[in-house]
Amino acid sequence: MKWLDHLEEIFITALIGVATLIIFIAVVHRYASGLPLGAFQDFLLSIHMSWAQELCIILFVWMAKFGAAYGVRQGIHVGVDVLVNRLNADNRRRMTTVALSAGILFTGIVAILGARMVWENGLAYVALNALGMDTGSHYEGPTTPDLEWPTWIVYMAVPLGSSLMSFRFMQVLANFWRTGDLPHHDHGHVEGLDEVEPFPIVEQKP
């Protein structure tokens, strides 16, 4: 499963990076094309950037769905542990099992609902058409307004991301039963800050 881990990480890293770059370029373009630079201005004005916001949103929604799955194995999703922490070991084990199962259940249901939505929203039409079958009451789905991409492709983030998330919850639960460990995200830990050199101002202490 290492390949899946890596793929997941590379994917969400790329999504946030590309989204940042796109908005940066769009803003620079907006100002540059307002400058009276003659032919260069006409060239800039001929570049269409009006899809930038839409693409940024799509990239971030995909990042959110797959990042949420990545977050499960990082233990980053915050919960209320006041009650759980007061239970004895056996009950805590039971409660944690319930909580993780709820995660599997919810993300599993969403994956199925998402798949149905994508199907109804245009995939059915495309698939049945491709197979030369009668599309019946399935109609061709809408597109996004600016990029004009079929929305069913864009919405695939929901079933795909949620399936992966459900799978991650299963992995965490299996590992919890085997070892009793849960992934834990330490919000107080900052990578790289442990090695900072001694704070300079302390040396000036009288």
Partner: peptide, 8 residues
């Protein structure tokens, strides 16, 4: 209160 993520 089961400790599951708030989002879930």
């Amino acid at each position: 209160l089961t400790g599951m993520p708030i989002s879930i």
